[in-house]
Computed example of a mutant assay.
Amino acid sequence: MNAVQPIVHIVDDDAAYLRATTRLLLASGFAVQGYASANEFLAREAGSQPGCVVVDLQMPGLSGLDLQERLARSANPMPVVFLTGQGDIASSVRAMRAGAEDFLEKRAPLDELLDAVRRALTRGEQEQALRGRQLELEQRIESLSAREREVLEHVLRGRLNKQIAGDLGINERTVKLHRTSIMTKMKVRAVAELARLVQEIGERKSGAGS
């Protein structure tokens, strides 16, 4: 099964520059889609396909910075490479602080643009993989019943089946059944592996909230 080719989305209200940049990137082996405005890009049928966005800083309506903010809040955020016809230090700083992959002048050599696009695509695929991993882990936790979560807490504290049964007011056989179900749903074979997985979920949630 072939991997899905990531797409370079180019957003620029300068029709001539949009055509020229699209041709250059296509000739360099990238899959490319062009848009004349940020609104046109946002109105596309967005999916989960990996990619990056190459966007003009200054455009009528939504600016490149506005688009960057919208992307960050979307279900499939992608790295952004900014292009500008005029040097703007304040905008550059704002864009980079918000996570832009690069900030280039439109007069920059083609090699610089190609390098920025390659880095953005690599980063985009890595970040998408991390989001997929996080979603999978969350789904495993959510598949546990309320009682199984209670048992899980006691298991992680190192409690024995007999102790858990006493704490929860259930028989030991029921505890064993819950433990088996927990290990199956969490896709682990040992308590140590279960503990590492729960720790990873907690760390990812903390990272996402920071």
Rank of each mutant, 00 (worst) to 15 (best):
T180E: 15
R19W: 12
F30C: 09
E172R: 11
G51K: 01
L113R: 02
V11N: 08
L197G: 11
S37L: 05
A98F: 07
V188E: 02
L152D: 00
R44T: 04
R119Y: 09
S48H: 12
I164V: 00
P77R: 00
P6F: 05
A36I: 09
A15W: 06
L114I: 04
T21C: 08
P6Q: 04
S92G: 15
A195P: 08
D13N: 05
G87P: 14
A120D: 05
D12E: 03
K106G: 02
T84I: 01
L135R: 15
S91P: 06
L104K: 02
V151T: 00
D88W: 00
C52W: 01
Q58Y: 14
R123G: 00
R204G: 10
A129T: 00
E69C: 12
E142Q: 15
R94P: 13
I182G: 00
M1S: 11
R107L: 13
I170N: 07
R157G: 11
L110N: 10
E101P: 06
L137N: 05
A31K: 13
Q86L: 11
V32Y: 06
E105I: 15
I89T: 15
L137T: 01
L152T: 07
M78L: 12
A98E: 02
A165F: 04
V53G: 01
A95V: 12
V188T: 06
R123K: 10
L83D: 01
V8E: 04
V4W: 08
E193C: 00
M59W: 06
G207Y: 09
P6C: 04
E138N: 07
V32M: 05
A120H: 00
L26A: 13
D115I: 13
L113F: 00
E193F: 01
I182D: 04
F41S: 09
R19S: 15
L168Q: 01
S48M: 14
G29L: 06
S206T: 14
L83S: 03
A43C: 02
H178S: 08
A192Q: 11
G61I: 13
R131M: 03
M1Q: 13
L104S: 04
N171C: 03
G34S: 08
L24M: 06
P77G: 11
A72E: 07
E112L: 12
L26S: 11
G158E: 08
A146D: 12
E112A: 15
L24T: 07
S206E: 01
M1F: 13
M1H: 14
A20C: 10
L177Q: 13
E193T: 14
I89E: 15
V4E: 15
L168T: 05
L160D: 15
T180K: 14
L25R: 03
A43Q: 10
R196P: 11
K176V: 04
E193S: 07
V8I: 09
T180Q: 15
F103H: 04
E69K: 15
A15Y: 08
Q49A: 12
G124S: 07
R140E: 09
E193K: 05
K205C: 03
L25G: 02
